[in-house]
Design a binder for these strands. Structure first.
Lengths: 264, 264
DNA sequence: ATACACTGTTTCATATTATGAAACTTACCG
DNA sequence: CGGTAAGTTTCATAATATGAAACAGTGTAT
């Protein structure tokens, strides 16, 4: 661990949507470092465009970070392959479509095709969401080794905090939902994360047949998980499978065939 | 300048879409540093999620960078305010819509609503493009102080390199185009950056009445700058003005009124 | 089968360099 | 005009990043 690099990265992590601009003294105070040290670090970050300085001398995250995302592995390997397929899906359903990857006990939104109504808030790309109360998150959980799900949520009641009255807050309740999802092949989110938001999600697998993320259809129409569910779910599942194939995933039947052949 | 921080940032800049994964030795050789030093730096970046390690031990840019973009100043102040307006624009024209900010002699794409055909390639968000041969770039140039345009392109023939046979490669030629754009209020890109891509762009101003970026409509249909031009151009111009207002821009007539009042 | 070449990782003394106190500069407010 | 608080610069020293070398794995070739 190189201390000065760690400090520089901590500075980058200090900025938030609520506080996109920070002054030198605020930064140094928050991180408990001297003004001079913070200043040196900021100057270095400034030079490389990771930080920008405003007219009022305050500091903010620089545009370089936006440019860097084009080279992030998941964007190259997953997003760029999935984007055209997700676009097709969005065209057929007229709702927002999301692509997410698992990151520990959360899911990170890496691509979105958002309807006008959704965009009244900011785009979801770059946001994290919990696994247990979103369609995309539950799609990951449903196809994760059961012991990992237990490790995350069993005997940890605070790990299943309620976002809305619809959030599944019991481990058993969650397990049942995941079992149902597994047999159906898709997940349903009935306002479990956000009120009046209904989603259908499906898991995405990689070349090792492990879940790496999920995609979903999301919107304000309750019929998404009602009258439209059959059509929409087969759409997400198909899209997720296509994406999985592009990631090198070999569908189960084939791997069973291969197993049989290997057994002979 | 803190050397170790600079080296860490140089490591981050080493990754590209063509090479999203790099080995330790490649990194250390390219940057002329010892394996051990690179290893220490990478470990620190790893700890903070800026770098991820693959199964084959190679390194790649981490997901944290995607999450960071939500806090970048232009995304908070410009993108999030502009997104719903751009969505409306996209709905009316059925072509790709882009939002860009100026970054020196280039333009950075920070938001996009892309049509299926465009998405056969990757999303443009995070890409840079030159100012002189794109609708968005020329919209910035047209409303920049003329001396700045001269500084960038006058007596520098190599600064106007041709991307296609349609690229404006003469300074005089560019100036004429910018003058025409200024009086119309919008710019036209007739395959100047990419063959078979036609765009209409309009400038975005901030609270100091300075150009900070531009938005555009872009597509493969030649009629975008033909039969559909009148409708599309008034659409982008209107959208760009709305975005400018949200940035604190005061339309010119009002500022003239204020000047007159100040003069009394 | 064995040795070689190539990875990435760890260790450690020392030479480099980041640090923090203080002084300097600006700007703002009373 | 004087005082406070901001950012910036300087500099000696204490801290720490560095690079050599040795270690540990992997795969390849002899």
């Amino acid at each position: 661990m190189i201390a000065s690099v760690a400090k520089a990265l901590e500075i980058l992590n200090l900025f938030s949507t609520a506080e996109p601009c920070l002054t030198l003294t605020t930064i140094s105070k928050r991180l408990g470092m001297h003004k001079s040290t913070a200043h040196h670090l900021l100057n270095t970050l400034l030079q490389y465009g990771f930080i920008e300085q405003q007219a009022d001398d305050s500091y903010a995250l620089g545009k370089t970070i936006i440019a860097l995302t084009q080279n992030v592995l998941v964007n190259v390997e997953l997003r760029d392959r999935a984007a055209p397929l997700l676009r097709e899906l969005a065209d057929t359903c007229n709702e927002s479509v999301y692509l997410t990857v698992r990151d520990g006990d959360r899911v990170l939104y890496i691509y979105a095709i958002e309807s006008s109504q959704r965009l009244l808030a900011r785009t979801a790309v770059g946001d994290y969401a919990p696994l247990y109360c979103t369609a995309v998150g539950k799609a990951v959980l449903a196809f994760l080794p059961p012991e990992e799900v237990s490790r995350l949520y069993a005997d940890r009641p605070d790990s299943l905090a309620a976002f809305t009255p619809h959030t599944l807050t019991g481990f058993r309740q969650l397990q049942d939902d995941l079992a149902r999802s597994r047999s159906r092949g898709y997940t349903v989110d009935n306002q479990e994360h956000e009120l009046n938001t209904f989603c259908v999600g499906a898991p995405i697998f990689d070349a090792h047949n492990a879940v790496i993320g999920a995609c979903s259809i999301s919107g304000l129409d309750a019929e998404i998980i009602g009258a439209r569910l059959e059509a929409l779910s087969s759409g997400v599942v198909y899209t997720a499978q296509q994406i999985s194939r592009r990631m090198g995933y070999v569908p189960e039947r084939m791997s069973m065939v291969r197993q049989n052949m290997a057994g002979k």
